[in-house]
């Protein structure tokens, strides 16, 4: 009972935070510096790890596909397989998971610290709503940066797959055929679906992290607990949303 109450409370809190933050959207042009800073922290500094991860995901996909398709001499399909799985599923989900681990945790820690050390209270007494300067720029930043991260993850993953497919002894698939496979089987719609998914995941990861951070009460110990909570909720949310968003997108 208390658990259900807790979940509902979180759910409502997240929604209210979202509405309150976007109510301050008109103030965004005045905070463009803050927006740039958040874009930098959320997008730019996350890029290297997204690049490394997606490169290896693409590689391992090609390796597995090559190994499995060897039996039926269907190695021409490696490109299609790697291309589609990255575009439709792995690039958005893995980027979002990285985001939860790297950015979500940082945001919840920062906001929890601000809350615990009364910085948030100070903002309130200054008549500066925390949603306006702490949440809104981050939400807009992730909306801007997530497509960039995801498309990069796609392309770098494809490249990783191409390199493996060409150079591994038992595959040795010509890059041209690999990319032709991608070109023939991956439609822009697949990429677009992936970008939409990533956008939704990224948005919720940041929103939940902000919410959990701002809800923190108590001392330093609660800061740690908040970070854990933010990451766990984000991960669950990504995978649950993944199912629903994917099936919703299939209907359009």
């Amino acid at each position: 009972m208390k658990q259900i109450n807790n979940i509902l409370e979180h759910f409502g809190g997240v929604l209210i935070l979202c509405v309150r933050s976007f109510a301050y959207l008109p103030s965004l042009p005045l905070q463009w510096r803050r927006l740039i800073e958040q874009c930098f922290l959320i997008g730019y500094t996350t890029f290297p790890i997204v690049a490394i991860l997606s490169f290896f995901i693409g590689s391992v996909l090609a390796l597995q596909a090559g190994y499995s398709l060897q039996a039926v001499a269907g190695q021409d399909f490696i490109g299609a397989l790697v291309g589609l799985s990255l575009a439709r599923e792995l690039a958005p989900v893995m980027t979002a998971i990285l985001l939860a681990g790297r950015v979500g945790s940082a945001i919840s820690a920062e906001l929890a610290t601000m809350k615990v050390y009364q910085e948030v209270d100070a903002l309130v007494t200054m008549n500066i709503p925390p949603e306006r300067i702490l949440v809104l720029p981050r939400l807009v930043a992730i909306l801007l940066m997530m497509p960039v991260l995801t498309i990069s993850a796609n392309l770098i993953g494809w490249l990783g797959g191409a390199i493996i497919a060409q150079n591994i002894e038992f595959i040795q698939l010509d890059q041209r055929i690999y990319f032709q496979g991608i070109q023939n089987f991956v439609k822009f719609r697949d990429i677009l679906d992936g970008l939409i998914k990533a956008e939704i995941f990224g948005f919720f990861v940041i929103l939940v992290s902000c919410h959990v951070g701002l809800r923190t009460t108590g001392g330093p110990r609660e800061i740690g607990a908040s970070v854990t909570r933010a990451v766990v909720i984000s991960l669950i949310l990504i995978l649950v949303l993944d199912y629903f968003v994917t099936s919703a997108l299939m209907k359009f």
């Binding site: 610290t113 050390y117 009364q118 007494t125 200054m126 500066i128």
Partner: peptide, 29 residues
């Protein structure tokens, strides 16, 4: 128009002293 001086200061740790002071007038233009 009310200000509270917190017992523990409650300064914004991510900003310089100057920016701490300038935040209010800046945000309210």
């Amino acid at each position: 128009s009310m200000a509270l001086v917190f017992q523990a200061g409650a300064l914004f740790n991510s900003m310089s002293v100057f920016d701490n002071l300038a935040l209010y007038p800046r945000e309210h233009r």
